[in-house]
Each structure stands twice: as structure tokens, then as C-alpha cells.
């Protein structure tokens, strides 16, 4: 009915379409997890502003597609299991 290929009223009809937006490209430093040290306390998970911490069975992993490299996880990790390294 409309010749314009947009949804009436700018409604976004699906949730979390921002997943297309890979903000990992913003990163200048990357967090690296030492899984030996990680006790899976999940503090990094709750504090990550970018929902970029993946919960695994025994430890966490970083979702580099979205991690912007802020370093909060490394800062808040009580076991110092995460270190920030320069992006190559």
C-alpha cells in the first residue's frame, strides 16, 4: 500500500535487532580470560554494559562480537582472571 519500504510509525516489530550491530569493532583493548583462574562468580557478567559475557558451565567467555573493551570485567574480577591486552 505504501511505496516506502518502512514499517508504519517506525515500529520495530522484532526484539533485539541490534544483534546485527557488531560493536566489537569499537575495541582498542581486548579482555582475555584465564579460565584456570576463573571461578565463575559471574561478577563480570552482571557488570558488563554490553551483555558480552557468555556464561559457560565452569567459567565465562567473552563475546568479542560485541565487547567494546571497556575493561570493567578485568577491573572487577576478584581473581584477576581477566587481563586487558592491546588489539593487534
Amino acid at each position: 500500500m505504501s511505496k516506502y519500504d518502512v514499517v508504519m510509525g517506525a515500529v520495530i516489530t522484532k526484539p533485539r535487532t541490534s544483534l546485527e550491530n557488531k560493536t566489537g569493532s569499537w575495541r582498542t583493548r581486548r579482555p582475555v580470560v584465564d579460565v584456570e583462574k576463573c571461578v565463575n562468580c559471574l561478577l563480570c557478567w552482571i557488570y558488563c554494559p554490553d551483555s558480552a559475557i557468555i556464561r559457560l558451565e565452569d567459567h565465562i567467555a567473552i563475546n568479542y562480537d560485541y565487547c567494546k573493551g571497556c575493561g570493567i570485567c578485568a577491573e572487577e574480577c576478584p581473581r584477576k582472571a581477566i587481563t586487558m591486552v592491546e588489539e593487534g
Binding site: 526484539p15 533485539r16 535487532t17 541490534s18 544483534l19 546485527e20 550491530n21 557488531k22 560493536t23 569499537w26 575495541r27 554494559p49 554490553d50 551483555s51 558480552a52 563475546n63 562480537d65 560485541y66 567494546k68 573493551g69 571497556c70 575493561g71 570493567i72
Partner: peptide
């Protein structure tokens, strides 16, 4: 709160 939002780092 989907990843891929455009908030500043941190």
C-alpha cells in the same frame, strides 16, 4: 538488553 546497542564503552 541486547548487545549491539550504541552506548559508550563502560
Amino acid at each position: 538488553w541486547g548487545p549491539g546497542h550504541n552506548a559508550c564503552a563502560g
